[in-house]
Simulated assay, not measured.
Amino acid sequence: MSKVLNALYTLLLSSSLLASPAYSAGSGSYHSNSSTSAEKLYNQGVALMMDKKFSKAEKKFRSAIKKDTSLAEAHNNLAYTLRKQGSKNYKSALTHYNKAINLNPKLPEPYMYRGVLYVQMGDKQRALADHQTLVDMRSPLAAELEYVVKNGREKTPDQFFGVSDKL
């Protein structure tokens, strides 16, 4: 999917036209030179994530990353599924958000979701730094992260913002 379509998709999701349960899930769509096998595993992970089957989705994202280590979106979605499985996974989730950002610094979703994680970890200053990055990127996700920073919690009912489409 082109960057323009990806941006449009993120905008639609941010306006809740495509909102569905489970807040702060994954990345925007991404076409890579990855093998069909990695894409298939990634897409299976997205479907499981959307169904809130986080442990099963985690396994799919890990398998996709083994096939193609350059999938920033897979690292982002893996981090999300880890975060949703509890605080014992926060350190690992942070590692994968950072990896996603290192692989694709122009991808706004990992900044959003890492900011949410920082709020959950009690680190408001780092969350604000990620918010500023989103503002600088002119991402509609900046408003979503701002809400989390101001309120110390995610919106209810849970929503997807910038959820990835299938590859």
Rank of each mutant, 00 (worst) to 15 (best):
M1W: 14
M49A: 15
D158P: 08
K53A: 12
V46E: 07
R153G: 07
A19Y: 11
S164W: 03
A7Q: 14
L167V: 12
H31C: 11
A72V: 04
L13K: 15
Y97I: 10
L48S: 05
N6T: 13
L94D: 11
N76V: 03
E146G: 05
T81Q: 01
K66C: 05
F161Y: 15
A74N: 07
T95N: 13
Y9S: 14
K66G: 08
Y90S: 00
L5N: 08
K52V: 09
T156F: 06
S27W: 00
A25E: 10
L145I: 06
S27D: 04
N104S: 11
T81C: 14
A47G: 02
Y80N: 13
L12A: 13
F161V: 13
N76Y: 05
T95Y: 13
A100M: 06
I101K: 01
S20V: 12
S32T: 14
L107H: 01
S87W: 05
K150S: 01
T69N: 15
V149F: 02
L134I: 06
S20F: 13
V119C: 06
L134P: 07
A100F: 05
E154V: 12
P21A: 10
Y42W: 12
K106F: 02
K99G: 04
A64C: 01
G152W: 02
L134V: 05
A19K: 15
Q159E: 10
T36R: 10
Y97V: 09
K155M: 11
R153F: 04
G115C: 04
L8G: 02
V149A: 02
K91H: 01
S139M: 04
D68L: 01
A47T: 12
T69G: 12
L5P: 00
N43G: 07
M137Y: 10
Y23D: 09
G152N: 04
G28D: 03
M137I: 03
M112L: 14
K91I: 04
A79W: 05
N89G: 08
Q132A: 07
L13E: 15
H131N: 08
M49K: 09
K3P: 12
A19M: 12
D123Q: 06
N89K: 10
Q132Y: 07
L107R: 00
K99V: 03
V149H: 01
A25T: 10
Q125Y: 05
K99H: 07
P108Y: 12
L12I: 14
